[in-house]
Amino acid sequence: MYRTLVVGLGRAGTGLHLPTLDRLRKGTRAGTLFAGAPMVAVDPVPAPATLPPGTVRLPTLELARAELDPQRTVVHVCTPPDGRDAVIERLARLGFVNLLVEKPLTADTAQLTRIEDLRRQYGLRLVVVAQWLVSSLTGRLKDHVATGEFGALRAIRVVQRKPRFSRSLATSGHPTAFDVEIPHALGVALDLAGPARLTDAAWSDLRTDVAVRPRLGTATLRLTHEGGASTRIASDLTAPVRERRITCEFTEATVVGHYPISQDDGFAQLAVEGREFTKREVFPDDALPEFFRHAYQRFADGGEFGIDLAARTVRLVDEAKQLCLLRERPTPLPAGAVRDAG
């Protein structure tokens, strides 16, 4: 049985992790997976937040350490990805080793290297939240790839659209649009089609009539997988509508899946169009609670934990950002060139 500590009371902490955990605890027999003691939440900013009844809110990690047994606590790290390495180091120094980290693991490869060092140094059992990987929809797509019933997988296209103006203008925890939704989709693409190299990337600003947030509007990346398939992932955080769509093109059919777009409706859809048939399925796909349940069970069973897929995702996203930055820089004049003083 494990206590729960949620670090960071922004959108992920208060809107996703705590309410999902509250539902899981109520639906799980007491004393089997989750400890009966209250959940603990830490955020140094005294901002208003609606927490599940009974949750103990504390201002510092040190006070949480006095309340909890670090070895018997799962820490949900819900702070922004930029600076995640510093948060994980503080937790490790306080003795916490069971960490469930909100995606993406971190914002760049330098912080990733530091986290990998901390993981080895302190024996951290670290899991990155990736509910799309345990989604029923993703599972069905993986089955189609594995069985080969529709032939070889040739291409993956992911489109993610949602309006994110208020949060992008109010906070600075996600440096670019690549850090918001892209990591979920990228993890799925790598899981379906295997390792890949980046071939192209682009981003744009988020603009309103009164403000601009650089690089937080759209993000697009293209990959070529070692097995020959290609992937294109496009995320638009300025769209007026919501959509999470994945299209897998096989040699004999096209499969289109729609992930749930919010916790308001936990159903996914899958449509298959072949040369001589079509079919459509609609099924429950509330993946986040299942991901949490599996993670807590692995902690309890002493299972092995790896961050290889999460690390590959961070490296590819960081490479995409660097490519975009390179294109933004002025091209230097060749040696000996004369500027036009016009």
Rank of each mutant, 00 (worst) to 15 (best):
H184F: 11
G148H: 12
R164M: 11
S166F: 12
A146W: 01
L192W: 06
F178K: 11
L198Q: 05
W203R: 07
R167H: 14
V180G: 02
A189L: 08
L198F: 02
E149H: 05
L141N: 02
A130Y: 04
A202Q: 03
V145D: 04
P183E: 10
L186E: 03
A130K: 12
T176C: 00
G151M: 03
S136E: 13
R167S: 14
S136Y: 01
F165V: 05
L192S: 08
R157H: 14
R167L: 15
V158T: 11
L206Y: 10
H184V: 09
A185F: 13
E181A: 14
V128Y: 01
V180I: 09
L186G: 09
P163D: 04
G139Y: 05
R161S: 11
T176G: 00
T138W: 04
L198C: 02
A170M: 06
R207M: 01
L137P: 00
S136Q: 07
G148C: 04
D191E: 15
R207K: 14
E149M: 08
G194M: 13
I156Q: 06
L126K: 02
E181P: 01
D179G: 01
G173N: 04
R140K: 15
L137H: 03
H144K: 11
A155L: 01
P195I: 08
I156M: 12
A130M: 15
F178A: 02
S166G: 08
V145F: 13
H184G: 07
E181S: 12
G187T: 00
K162V: 02
V134R: 12
A130D: 15
G139F: 06
W132S: 07
A202E: 09
L137W: 07
R161D: 14
L198M: 10
H174C: 08
A170R: 12
L153K: 12
Q131G: 04
I156S: 06
R154C: 09
R197Y: 02
A155E: 11
D143R: 13
S136G: 10
D143E: 10
L169Y: 00
A152S: 08
R157I: 03
F150T: 02
V127S: 09
L137N: 04
L198P: 02
V127Q: 10
T171N: 13
R164G: 00
E149W: 05
T199R: 15
F165Y: 13
A185T: 05
A130W: 05
R140N: 09
S204G: 12
A155T: 03
R157K: 13
L126M: 05
A202F: 00
S204E: 05
A196P: 05
S166H: 14
D143S: 14
L190K: 13
T208F: 10
L192C: 09
H144Y: 14
T176E: 01
H174E: 15
L169D: 00
K162Q: 11
L190N: 14
L186A: 07
I156Y: 04
S172C: 08
D200K: 04
Q160T: 06
S168G: 03
V128A: 00
L141W: 05
A177R: 09
V127I: 09
T176S: 02
F165G: 00
S168V: 06
F150R: 08
A202D: 03
A193H: 07
R164Y: 15
G187H: 01
P183K: 11
T176W: 00
P183A: 10
R197F: 05
A152L: 02
E181V: 06
V134H: 05
L137Y: 04
R157V: 12
A170G: 09
